[in-house]
């Protein structure tokens, strides 16, 4: 079986990973009164509180800042969850993988689908907020670029999940390392704060791939611009992640189950 056949086999198990993703999501909120609505509520509380404080700290207009922050945080939450949960994808699936021969992609699909459901729920807050702040002027072709941006981010997440999962199963230090790395990346990437104008083109920001992933969503809505450079960076990241999977799949295909 090669990598593409694995993905094809995983797609055929669509009903399984959709069910597992839904159960996984529900299990996180088992017994709570609000259930999965906590996903939206937690985002609203986070964005609301941080906007009040940071709009003053950064001396920004509250309306502009809350939109910048909301889009940044919800996109960052998706990216960071993919990285941290990606580390445990295969170890969590150990029960299944030790039972029968299953495609690696089954569990990658499960995790990415679960995070996409969360991302969709975030839109319950984000879309009304965009219309509230921007009004109907936002109804333009810019939405095409936002959807295209999300598509690129999801595809990158899909392929990155494979190698993050493989690496974390093989080297047990990777998972705690990624946990710390995500916190550091959050602080050095412009999620809470926009890059200062005079440094916007500096290599510090331009070489940070996460800055570009955030720009895929933020630039069309907040600045009304097509983030051409960020799109090219995302295409490069997608190609790179696909190549990593294609090269390493045959090496880890039969070994992964031994590392779980």
């Amino acid at each position: 079986m090669n990598f593409l056949e694995d993905i094809k086999g995983g797609l055929l198990r669509k009903r399984l990973w959709i069910e597992l993703a839904k159960l996984d999501l529900k299990a996180n909120y088992q017994g709570s009164a609000l259930g999965v609505f906590w996903i939206v509520l937690a985002l609203m509380l986070k964005v609301g509180m941080l906007s009040v404080v940071y709009s003053m700290v950064l001396d920004k207009n509250f309306g502009d800042y809350i939109l910048f922050l909301a889009l940044g945080i919800l996109t960052w939450n998706f990216i960071s969850s993919i990285i941290t949960n990606g580390a445990t994808i295969f170890r969590k699936a150990s029960n299944f993988m030790q039972q029968m021969r299953l495609e690696h992609s089954t569990f990658v699909f499960q995790n990415v689908y679960k995070e996409c459901l969360v991302l969709l729920m975030y839109q319950l807050f984000a879309i009304p907020l965009v219309f509230f702040i921007k009004g109907t002027e936002i109804l333009s072709w810019m939405w095409f670029w936002v959807i295209f941006g999300y598509l690129l981010i999801i595809l990158i997440a899909f392929f990155a999940s494979f190698w993050i999962g493989w690496l974390s199963a093989r080297f047990r230090d990777i998972q705690p390392m990624l946990g710390s790395l995500v916190v550091i990346l959050f602080l050095i990437t412009p999620v809470l704060w926009p890059p200062p104008e005079k440094f916007a083109d500096s290599l510090y920001f331009q070489l940070n791939p996460f800055f570009h992933l955030l720009e895929l969503i933020r630039a069309p809505i907040v600045q009304g611009e097509v983030p051409v450079t960020s799109i090219w960076v995302a295409v490069f990241l997608l190609t790179l992640n696909m190549l990593i999977c294609l090269i390493f799949y045959s090496k880890v295909r039969d070994r992964l189950v031994l590392w779980l």
Binding site: A27, N95, F96, Q99, M100
Partner: peptide, 15 residues
Amino acid sequence: IYSFFGRNVGVMPQL
């Protein structure tokens, strides 16, 4: 082939 390994393998207790 149908494989069934271990009494609790494949059972997810939270579900």
